[in-house]
């Protein structure tokens, strides 16, 4: 009983908006440059690894360059505000894609990678985490443009680091679940998970793993990098 009261008290402690802000700061700092690989495992057991470079500025500007495999070399993605573009060398131009579309046919969707600002897209409330060392926030979509209808997020109490996430569709069905691990200090004073495994809950044999190898918090990348005209250059 005492333990229960204590957990309840502890859970009632933090402000949800504050927790969300912390999550956004960890997963999508205001400006950064990073390198990562994504390995997608498909239902037939085959794997494919993509190598990419990220650049982010402000809350809503994001750019990705793909370098591997050769099939996607030269491909780029751009997010500017609510607009999402993919540049395919074949097309020699950019074309719009949607938040909910799969990121390179894997189990992340485009918004999972390019649109990490939950505070802007979701309303949150604290729910029972089921474990003493974490808070669990239940997020509800604020508008139709979000990629999920609701999300359950577990954050470690000691340092606000994300531990796991569950992502739900409009029917209330769990579509994906994520495990955050290998938390490490990429830069002095900046720690985040180095590895995210996104499990496809609809097709259990499918999953994708995103590994960040380098991340530096850049103060100010040039604004021109986040324009359509810069794609393919």
């Amino acid at each position: 009983m005492t333990a229960l009261v204590l957990t309840l008290l502890a859970a009632a402690d933090p402000d949800v908006a504050d927790l969300l802000k912390k999550y956004d700061e960890i997963m999508g700092p205001a400006a950064f440059e990073a390198e990562a690989t994504m390995t997608a495992t498909r239902e037939d057991g085959s794997e494919r690894t993509y190598a990419m470079k990220f650049l982010k500025k402000d809350q809503d500007k994001f750019r990705i360059w793909f370098s591997e495999p050769s099939a996607v070399k030269g491909q780029e993605m751009l997010r500017n505000g609510d607009n999402l573009w993919v540049y395919i060398p074949n097309l020699k131009r950019a074309t719009r894609v949607a938040n909910r579309d799969n990121f390179q046919g894997g189990d992340f969707n485009n918004a999972d990678v390019l649109r990490v600002n939950y505070a802007a897209d979701y309303d949150g409330k604290l729910v029972d985490a089921g474990q003493p060392d974490a808070w669990c926030i239940e997020l509800k979509a604020k508008h139709k443009e979000t990629s999920y209808d609701s999300i359950k997020l577990w954050l470690r109490k000691s340092d606000y680091q994300p531990l796991k996430g569950q992502y739900f569709g409009t029917s209330g069905q769990m579509i994906r679940s994520a495990t955050f691990s290998e938390h490490r200090e990429f830069e002095k004073g900046f720690t985040r998970p180095g590895r995210i495994v996104m499990q496809n809950e609809l097709v259990k044999t499918r999953k994708s793993e995103m590994k960040t190898s380098r991340m530096t918090l850049k103060s100010d990348p040039p604004a021109q990098r986040f324009t359509q005209a810069d794609l393919g250059k």
């Binding site: 494919r48 993509y50 495999p69 395919i88 074949n90």
Partner: peptide
């Protein structure tokens, strides 16, 4: 633009 994941899942277009 006609877009599709290729046989290996990588996005491609014409």
């Amino acid at each position: 633009a006609l877009l599709a994941g290729d046989r290996d899942g990588a996005l491609n277009g014409e």
